[in-house]
Design a protein around this nucleic acid. Structure first.
Lengths: 187, 187
DNA sequence: CCAGACCTACCAACTGGCAGGTAGACAAAC
DNA sequence: GTTTGTCTACCTGCCAGTTGGTAGGTCTGG
């Protein structure tokens, strides 16, 4: 049960944090979900800060992998860019959850330093990928790639947040359509 | 101290919630800030849910007033729209805080029903105002006013969230500029 | 035998909320 | 004109539940 327990803890913590944030993580509930005792979690993750940082790190690693898979799958950079919102849509589909990093961005003031660093890393992964494709697609001149990438990332996160607050997946799609209509996102 | 205490509680709770969310509100800390005992807060607000709902309600009432004041001050609808991001900028200026409703949108799953309703009301106030000015300015045809209004609201909220996570007011301005450059916001 | 993985039992701190008391302002009753 | 009652706005003291975390024991596979 060694590696499997650790993985199960990470997975459960991720699901919980995507719905209730870092503050919503608690050892007893997590332990119950993994069918383990609360104290045992401390064996794998000494403190809550360690657990939090590990969860977010794994989260952006997985996201980076998904993005690379998407880029490999959809060779045309413009079409690939158009698929970016799918990533955030999936969280909403899975029980009206949201991006871990967005939630923790809100909780910024209460986050351990190590967790904050991982949250920033998530944003960097997204912005780098978007910037790369934006310039590859020639949507914007290379020197504006990062600025546009950040704008897209922030806007999509905002759309997810608003859709979640209404538990309305259709609203998310409508907001993304709105971004396309306005010219922020490639159609 | 009757009305003044109640107002002081509301003000302190608003500041706290803009930095730590609904979950970050706690009677003892609030009481200390207002120089009152924790139990006394229950006199003005029977439960935490009542306090939360009152805080958000007051928040969107104040926001509605600010928006109307802005509309009265800047008669040209296009220029007035351009000033919309100022509203969200002010929260960041005040100690890297964020919009109360955005934070609580993240906390959606842990919010009492009454609080959720007020959070939605905040979004509606903003979208209605934006929609009104967008159609008045002729930026979009009337039937697309609300869709564009929602897109702007979500995008600005996302920009605030991202800027907060970096404690970087300059990033907020850059993101808003990015929205203008992309055509989402009137220049 | 022993080390990794997990356990029981506990702790102090903190949480929202409640029961019941009190000081002062004001008004009606005698 | 002083006693009596009532109301507001607070208070003390407490409770049960939850939290992250610790100390030290146990069990199992290699």
């Amino acid at each position: 049960m060694s590696a499997s327990a650790k993985e199960a803890i990470l997975a459960a913590a991720r699901r919980t944090a995507q719905a209730h944030g870092y503050g919503g993580l608690n050892f007893r509930a997590l332990a119950e979900e993994v069918r383990i005792k609360a104290a045992s979690i401390h064996y794998h993750f000494p403190s809550k800060a360690d657990l939090g940082a590990a969860v977010v790190r794994r989260y952006w690693e997985d996201t980076a992998a998904s993005l690379e898979a998407m880029a490999a799958e959809t060779a045309d950079p413009l079409r690939c860019l158009g698929r970016y919102p799918e990533l955030f849509r999936r969280s909403l589909e899975a029980g009206n959850r949201m991006c871990l990093a967005s939630f923790m961005a809100a909780e910024h003031d209460d986050l351990p330093e190590a967790v904050k660093r991982e949250v920033q890393a998530f944003a960097e992964v997204n912005v780098a990928w978007l910037g790369r494709l934006l310039t590859a697609a020639g949507v914007v001149p290379a020197e504006q790639g990062e600025a546009r990438a950040r704008a897209i990332f922030a806007a999509v996160a905002g759309a997810q947040l608003m859709a979640r607050s209404r538990s309305d997946l259709g609203l998310y799609d409508a907001l993304i359509d709105g971004y396309r209509a306005a010219g922020l996102l490639p159609a």
